[in-house]
Amino acid sequence: MLGALKRLWHKLGSPRWFFALTSFWVSLFGWAALLFLLVGVVWGLAFAPADYQQGNSFRIMYVHVPAAMLAQSLYIGMGVAGFIGLVWRMKLTDVFIAASLPLGMAVTALALFSGSVWGRPTWGSWWEWDGRTVSTLVLFFLYVGIYALREAIAEMQLRARASALLAMVGTVNIPIIKYSVEWWNTLHQPASFGLTQKPAMPSEMWLPLLVMVLGFYALAGCVVLTRMRAEILHREGSARWVGEWVAGRRGS
């Protein structure tokens, strides 16, 4: 059992093995994302009942909440990858960080923008210096910071170590985002959705949200794996297995 685990651990560190394995998962996640997002958008926009206080503007929740959740999850993923990379010197963790950055930045910007658009009819303002809004803005700057850091350092090992460290340190911001609605007197509504408690809304309102969250995460799986494959090819371009892979592609 332990031996098998150890073998798996070593395999996980091998870019070649990862590249061979992920082709299937990219298409699976891609189709799942398309399906979930289409169903979720139609359901959330046209079939879910309007909120008794917010009217139809509450439908923005179906894109705002998944974007914000994914923005934080990806950052946590980068922090964990950074830790593993620093401790066990695994090649793939830096590939993961590089591959997650563009998507993380994009969905954080999306969470901020859709929140702003939702805030206008609900709070009466496009922007509030609210605890959650500001800590999410900090999250965005962390993504931008790691991106800029990577662009600035040419030496690969140093770049990997520096971004791993920044990703790790930045995770202190995640609990701040999470508890901001409890710590500070705030405009942002608390979570109406959690793993442990029953949702504070009827099922015809939260089911589309669940579908949208699944769609966002499936898309993230597809996009991050695709980018990791590109990054692996880029780094291992002269390795023998890449040559064999190219030959196999031309043959098929």
């Binding site: 926009l45 923008f113 658009v117 206008r120």
Partner: peptide, 11 residues
């Protein structure tokens, strides 16, 4: 979208 069409469609 009630009177929220602009916001919903923008998002």
């Amino acid at each position: 979208m009630g009177k929220h069409g602009l916001y919903v469609w923008l998002a």
